[in-house]
Design a protein around this nucleic acid. Sequence first.
DNA 1: TTAATAATGATAATGATTCTCGGATAGATG
DNA 2: CATCTATCCGAGAATCATTATCATTATTAA
Lengths: 124, 124
Amino acid sequence: MKYSKQKDEILKLMRSGKLDHPRAADVYVAMKKILPDIGIATVYRNLNSLADAGLIRRIAMPGEADIFDHRLDAHHHAVCEKCGKVFDFYFDRDGEISAMLKDTIGFEASEISCCARGRCAACR
Amino acid sequence: MKYSKQKDEILKLMRSGKLDHPRAADVYVAMKKILPDIGIATVYRNLNSLADAGLIRRIAMPGEADIFDHRLDAHHHAVCEKCGKVFDFYFDRDGEISAMLKDTIGFEASEISCCARGRCAACR
DNA sequence: TTAATAATGATAATGATTCTCGGATAGATG
DNA sequence: CATCTATCCGAGAATCATTATCATTATTAA
């Protein structure tokens, strides 16, 4: 992976935590203020390569655009159907599910993602 | 909801269980054999209205096309990253997750979906 | 400095899904 | 039965997220 200021700035932006569960388009908008000539393809490319390198995570959300997360620990997501905000939550039964899948159907899980949808506190 | 032979045939096809976790495109291909003049928009429209009516379920799969399920009971899905096959599995901790979300962040979950990805028995 | 390689930005292409349209049809009413 | 109207249909355009292509530029190792 070769250095580029685009990649560097994207990683810094992600790590800053200024963006909350941003989609690629959100990162693009924020990056435009830092590097006005950046293209959307470069944003996608770099988010993908940073994710491949394990420096950030790309998370597929059912029915919505993927989000990118600077947090690397195992956690799940709850999405408010009204405001769209994404909340992190912990639920450490991944091992239990993996074991069950292995025992019952011989399925070797590499990743387990739980996604809750509903209404957040503010929207109720 | 008005009757139409397209909707009727789509529901029959779904209920027959001949299709395994089909995407809209799969339903379209199968329906072409039954009603050769059917259009893809009609397939989407009817799958959506049948899902709205609670007769089938539309399930968003992270990173992939939505699938439609004739099974109405609560279950989760495991997707093989190699062959793409989708497996059903049960894991009745939904209530536990709901309660935790409610207690910790005041989030009222209406649906919880867990999606495992990895390798199925046949692909290992 | 140079040559090889990988990254860039613009834009075209893709895939899934929805929207729009004029025309057809189901089902209620007279 | 005749008619009316809401809903549905099929075709194709439009949308959205994402990836691919390509000519140009920047990085890096020699």
